[in-house]
Amino acid sequence: MIIYDADNAIYRFDGRSMDLAREYKMNPRGPYSTELQQILDRMRCTPMQGRYALLVEKPFESFRLCRLSGKRGIPPTIVDNIVYSSIAEAEWDIFKRRWKDLTGHDVILDSNHDA
């Protein structure tokens, strides 16, 4: 029987590579460079326990940040009452959070791009 291993995503990347974070910011829906794709693949394979997700607060209008419990029947945990007004806004924030979680580095872009 095949059961997923929460630790099977092992790709490591340099958290100082702001050019890759910038690439995502500029082109969030892809296609991505090979290295950015690998980073995103890593981010999207984080263990189910604690994985970021979005709860629909108001359909098509607002979305609340949460983390999955990873356990059947146990609801996600709301994160800091953060509410987004678009999926795109949420995806960029989740990207930055995961970057920090995986590398220890904050995503800091220059002011021209980080508007």
Binding site: Y4, A6, G30, L40, D41, R44, C45, P47, M48, R51, Y52, A53, L54, L55, V56, P59, F63, C66, L68, R72, P75, P76, I87, A90, E91, I94
Partner: peptide, 21 residues
């Protein structure tokens, strides 16, 4: 909630509706 590969397949964070909750 249960399948770890879902987000990777859709290349986007999961958006969970009230029904799915």
């Amino acid at each position: 909630f249960d399948s770890h590969n879902t987000e990777n397949l859709y290349e986007a964070p999961m958006v969970i509706s009230e029904e799915e909750m």
